[in-house]
Every structure is written in C-alpha cells, then in structure tokens.
Design a protein around this nucleic acid. Sequence first.
RNA 1: GGCGUCGUGGCCAAGUGGCAAGGCAAGGGUCUGCAAAACCCUCAUCACGGGUUCAAAUCCCGUCGACGCCUCCA
Length: 466
Amino acid sequence: MLRVYNTLTRKKEDFQTLEPGKVKMYVCGVTVYNDAHVGHAMSALVFDVIRRYLEYQGYNVKHVMNYTDVDDKIINRASQLGEDPFRLAQRYIDDYRQNLTDLNVLPASSNPRATQTMTEILSMIQGLIEKGFAYAAPNGDVYFRVTKNPDYGKLSGRRLDDMQAGARIEVGEQKEHPMDFALWKSAKPGEPAWDSPWGKGRPGWHIECSAMNLSELGEQIDIHGGGNDLVFPHHENEIAQTESFTGKPFARYWLHNGMLQLGGEKMSKSVGNIVSIKEFLTKRDPDVMRMIVLNGSYRAPLIFNEETLDSAEKGLERLKSGLRPASPSASGLVPEAVTALATQCEATQQTFTDSMDDDFNSSGALAAIFELVRSINTARDHSATADQLHPAQATLRALAGILGLRLSEKKSDSGDADKFIALLVELRTEARKQKNWAMSDLIRDRLKELGVSIEDGKDGTNWRWG
RNA sequence: GGCGUCGUGGCCAAGUGGCAAGGCAAGGGUCUGCAAAACCCUCAUCACGGGUUCAAAUCCCGUCGACGCCUCCA
C-alpha cells in the first residue's frame, strides 16, 4: 500500500485515488524567462520518479505540467533584451523541453500555458466575482477576497492575523485586505494584454494554475505538486480560488519537494548561486543529477556541490558495474549460488517496492538496488555465465528504469573503433605472454588516455569505454 | 516576530519505540607481472539537557543551531 506525505495534513496518508486506477497529477512548472537551473531539474526529477512509480504500480497517470508564459518577469526581461515577450517565452519553453528530454524526464501528458487558457481564466474570475469571492478595483485589477474564505491558510498553516503582524506586505491601496491577491492585473501601456470585463490586462499568477487545472483535469485532482517554496502563497491561493469556485475539495494530496541548496543556501537568482541545467549537462551525465536526487528524500533539502556530485557519479558507476558482461570463459555457477542470486533478486524487488511505497523513499530503493549489484558482481566473480547473470541484470535494469536511470554505457562515436580496440587488446595479450610488460603497459596507458579501460581478469582481458 | 521543516559516522543520506540501510571517502586483505575493476573485512549510539517507558535516534519539555516560507521563486 502506497503512503504519501500530504502537506495539507502534515501526515503520511494511504494513497487512494478519486477514480480507481487513475491518477490526476498537476505539477507547477516554470516561469519561462531565463535558463532553468538545477533546482528546477530537481523538482522535475522528483515528480518524474513519482509518476514513473505510479505507472509501475499500474496507475494510468495523467500528468499535467504548466508553463507560465506571461508575467512581470517575462515582460521585464523581454524589454531589457528588446525582444517580443511571446517570442522570449517560446524560446525558453523550447529550451526547457530540451532540458527535460536530456534529463530523461518523461513528457507530461499535457503542457498547458497561461496564454492559451485565457477563456477559462476569465470565466473563473467572473465566477468568483459573482459568488462574492472576488472584486474589481477601480483601476481594473481584480482581487481575491481572502476574508470571504474561512479555510484560507489551511495548506500553509497560517492565519490571516499572524501574517499581518510581522510581514513586510506592500499594501495595495486598491485592496480591501492586505492579503487579498490579484486575479487580474490591469495592463500598462505597451504590455501584453487581453480584453476582459474589467479592461485590458493579464492574469495573476495563481489563477492561471487554477484555471489550467480545471480545464485539463477537472474540479478535483489526486496530486498537486511543486517546490515547497510554492506552498505559500501560490498553492494556498490556488486552493482558495478553486475551492471557492467549485465548492469542492481540490487536490487530495499536496506533495512538495525540498529546495536544492548550493553553498548552504537555496539556489536562487537573487543569491547568484545558479547552475543552469544546460551548464550542468556539459559536465555530467544526466543520471548523475538523478542519482543525487534519489540519494535523499524528495522532501528534504538537497545539498548540491562538487563533492556530493562526485559521490553520486561514483555511485552511478557502481550501479553500472552490475551490468557488465559475464566473463567469456565463465564456467558457470554452482547451483547454490544460482539460488542465492535469485533470492537476492526477490529480496531486492520487495525492498524496492516497500521503500517506494513509503512516500517514495528512493534512498531505500536505491540501497536495495546496490545490494543486488553486489550480488551480481559476486556471481560474476564466481564465474557466472551470461545466462545465469541475465535475470538479475534484467531486474537491475528494470528497477533502475522505474527510477528513470538509464545506466547507459559510454560509447565511442563510431562503432568501428571496437574492432581495432579488440585488435590492440589481442596484441597486448601477446605481449603479456612474452612478459613484455613495457609494451603491454604502454598499450593499456595509451588506451586509457583514449577513454578505454583494460581489465585483466582470471578468465582473460576485458575492455570497456570509461 | 509568525508559520513550517530539520540537526544520524570524514562527506551525502535512510531509518519515527526493540540490537543504527545504502553510497562516497579512508584503512587492511583477495585477485594481478604491476595496475584497474570486482569481491571480503574494518569504520557512528544518532546536536545538547531533562522526562516518559522494561526498552528511544525514534515520544514529551527545554536549550542551541541550520534551512524554507511570510516579497518573484521548483
């Protein structure tokens, strides 16, 4: 039985969907005005793993991830660059899509965009006004009336009174209450704007997610996800809007990932400690990013630095070691060893699902996989044949695949190199027979420089890229 | 100031009442012509102080510290 930690209740709860076998999941995407950084990657990877695991458990997952493609930051950046804001947004959407593909993040079922959900946004605002949950200010802004919603604050555990006390809130003169937030912002000259009953303007940030949810998934959904920095005010406001509008509970489970930290602080533009996904991928395998995410709990802060990355990279190599082929001259395992390996396979599968069922405990799942790797390697050392290794290696691949790890081997640019390398290895074997250590070491060293590792085993010499 | 999360070996990190997973690093060993890889062995009583309990890293109280949110933010 899958249990998930629900931010709304601050507890782990049994996971039960609205409709049997189906999961409606909405994850807040990015605002597209700049290169996405590894913190965004963390969030995307967390929810990719969750989605993959749900699918593995047989759920049909409808996964929606939105793009905020119109807002102040986009407009500002566009005017700085002298670029059309819509063009700029499109450019960064394309970039982000590529980032996700590179990271092996499965494409969402749909990627709605604020600018393409305008009809729904407008009708939702209209509906909220009609029900008394929102009001238009004289300047054309429309605000949500927080005092009208008794549940306001239930997600983040805040009360309106507490928030007023020490908060540095810039009180808009147009607002009835300082915490009222904009559903619609009137446009200044030259800004992108849409017609509305309240004049030209654009949607507020929170309403777009409510509207996209409604149009893509309906009034009620199973999972709503995002970074924990979105809990307040974004998700709080989303709940308030949607539930005020529909009169029904919105999301059953609110899942939030922790923040990625660089130098002890959250990675953010204001601190200036940004590593873009693009930059990261020029230096490291995408699986390394995934490993570092899987190593810990998705809800906890993630420490990201060269040391933890190196560690993740080595760990990844270790996982891959389990997939190395049997020795060509392997003589076969004794029956007890075959049984032992099969037993480990089952144990690993069990621990894997037990762990993942416990609020997606990827760390525990990974630990189980590492134990399988050790067993496979031991079996190989004990002269297991390819056939004997195969079921365990298939399990390894399958489980790693559920976590989204590719475990792909480094490859040369052209497969043609292989036979020449094999030739060199053969020559080196001859040299070794003649105890020509200088020559055999030279070949080994030179191949190493070219990215080929030579390993002399009991049953002969193997080579591989890396 | 308010709300929330958290403090586990050199580093990263699971574990929420019953002898402390896993990865990285380190040391020793097997294998090897030497290596590399792999394998084996070693390496923590859980921030601090009280309390509850037969039993606590795990529950309660306090202290100190870190981080997130309260303003755009994955």
